[in-house]
Design a protein around this nucleic acid. Structure first.
Lengths: 140, 140
DNA sequence: TGTCATAGGGATAATTTTATCCCATATAGG
DNA sequence: CCTATATGGGATAAAATTATCCCTATGACA
């Protein structure tokens, strides 16, 4: 861990929300948990592109921000399950909207993103969340 | 500019959306433009916490991603106005939702964010967008 | 005795993003 | 001549995030 050196901007709600969702896999993690993929090892398998280390760190931050809760079962090998808190659930409409917007505009977005000068390669093999059911009902 | 070395994850819509919104001021910039704060100098004044350089860079990326359009008036001193494209407008419900979620949960979020170990200081003086009207009607 | 599964985290390197500083254009006004 | 306005961007430093590698623990199983 390090200590932030530039003051964190929390002026408008946008920046607060951004801080919570700020992390390469955080929205995806929240979405996974909302779809009952709740054990760390399951989440890890869901995102082959992510490192175990990073997922651990981001899970811990989400927990620290009160978006998820952790339940540890006193077993061996250990068993841990995460679940969304109430405020965590309240984020789901936003995350689902982001997901839908991205999918709805996929062809356009892939084009413009690949045209961006700094991009040399993209990866599509990472997320396997499509195998799981949608959560639309739950957040309806 | 640099060249990205790790492949960009674009597996699910979430990651595509994240890529577009990925930038300290991008959601705020889009929101500003949606509220008719469209000239670079105006946007800059709106976010005292942001550098001119960063806003330029992020505006350019948003333009490159097709979220905003730039109109340059052949004048001196130069005059430039940005506006949202159609797809840029289609992002506004998400951005407004993020803003509202952050504001609705402000007291809780400020608490947990400040408790996070890596935070030492926060800044609240940056965004002055509250002086402007809401855009609710426009995206209704 | 090896090896696997499951979870957690330290130390450090690499990458990516932001910040800082400086220069350029061209006109108007004191 | 200096200053201000308005916009854009290069070069480099600093900060923040992610990646890589390694070590911990313990029971089950071949």
């Amino acid at each position: 861990m390090y200590e932030r050196k530039t003051p964190l901007t929390i002026d408008c709600g946008l920046h607060l929300t951004k801080e919570v969702l700020n992390g390469k896999w955080k929205p995806a993690i929240l979405r996974a948990i909302s779809m009952d993929v709740k054990r760390p090892s399951e989440i890890l398998r869901l995102f082959p592109g992510a490192t175990r280390r990073v997922l651990n760190v981001q899970l811990k931050e989400l927990e620290g921000h009160g978006m998820i809760e952790k339940k540890t079962y006193p077993q061996l090998p250990p068993k841990v399950e995460y679940s969304l808190t109430e405020i965590g659930w309240s984020l789901m409409p936003i995350i689902e909207a982001m997901n839908q917007w991205g999918d709805a505009n996929r062809s356009f977005l892939e084009k413009v993103i690949k045209n961006a000068p700094k991009i040399s390669e993209t990866s599509k093999s990472a997320c396997q969340i499509y195998r799981h059911m949608t959560v639309a009902q739950k957040i309806g």
